[in-house]
Design a protein around this nucleic acid. Structure first.
Lengths: 172, 172
DNA sequence: TTCCGCATGTAATGGGTTACATGATTAG
DNA sequence: CTAATCATGTAACCCATTACATGCGGAA
């Protein structure tokens, strides 16, 4: 289930950036986690309150405009670490693959177009990741090491998909 | 959004297997779509009723035990085809990547273990797809062509991920 | 006649998106 | 003073999962 992921995403970011507010965290989600686990404002504020109620985080300071700065608690760190190392693989839903699976319902020509468009889109995504990889100034913190590793995941997986789409276009 | 996907999955399967009941479709979801778009019984029956109300499918026969056999309508086929060719890429959530991203919160040793476990799991998944690829007797219908292409997607993408995980294990 | 499989449905709960709503602070 | 940004929250709706609930039909 993806149950827990947003919760753990928020908890993890608070661990990495103590003193962040909901507002700050939302930006972090949109900046560094946009391609991994997007979150909406509404969802995030709700989750922060739940995390507080459950004692996994706490408000360290109240700033201007009711700004609540959070930090992780011992209990929270414990639960985060447990979640991180106990990986239970979750079922993945891929809307694009569902399309591919049903492509026999349109003409070959249209199917080819869909595949070609997908190839282009995938290449664009890869180019985007490449750009991030070169533009970001990586320091040698652990945090950035794993951010880079996560980025590389995308590059390798996308390369596999591009490989596939070339093959598939020839096949039909 | 994944809004629409279950709906279109059900519609597409009815297009491919006219005369199916909800019960039949559930088996098809679990058999051929398990790795692409899993569906629960509850969800499927609800969606079938909505599709009927909206005129995209219709009941062709009522069989024993209240069995309702469905077929797609002209309007339904139209909407299915439109959906198939108008690909709007959807944001992907990857719970595993979220973990990777946050792995700096545990020790290097533990992080390595998580990566190693993931490598093993990915290899197992790939072996599973390989087994399907060799065990299934593919005919030369369009339907099976695209099923095979969808399967190959998985194999290529997983190969990319295995590539990555080897690299990542060395990196940390 | 009894059990298994066929067959459909509802209710409760949680996660996620969009839209709405409100107000404080600061920079210009 | 005024506009942009900071900052938090609520409500309505949809999608998905789990569990519950019910009953018919056919095979042994």
């Amino acid at each position: 289930m993806s149950r827990m992921s947003l919760r753990m995403g928020a908890l993890g970011l608070i661990a990495q950036y103590p003193g962040s507010s909901g507002y700050d965290l939302l930006k972090t989600f949109n900046d560094s986690l946009a391609n991994v686990w997007p979150a909406t404002q509404s969802q995030l504020y709700g989750e922060l309150n739940k995390l507080t109620t459950d004692g996994l985080i706490e408000v360290s300071t109240i700033g201007p405009r009711g700004r609540k700065e959070y930090r992780i608690t011992d209990d929270g760190r414990q639960q985060l670490q447990t979640w991180l190392v106990s990986a239970d693989p979750e079922p993945v839903r891929n809307p694009f693959l569902l399309r591919v699976f049903l492509l026999s319902e349109v003409s070959r020509a249209e199917a080819r177009e869909v595949l070609a468009a997908a190839t282009q889109a995938t290449k664009a995504q890869l180019a985007h990741l490449d750009e991030i990889a070169t533009s970001v100034e990586w320091d040698d913190s652990d945090r950035e090491l794993f951010a880079r590793i996560a980025l590389e995941y995308g590059r390798h997986a996308l390369a596999g998909v591009i490989d596939w789409s070339g093959w598939a276009e020839r096949e039909i």
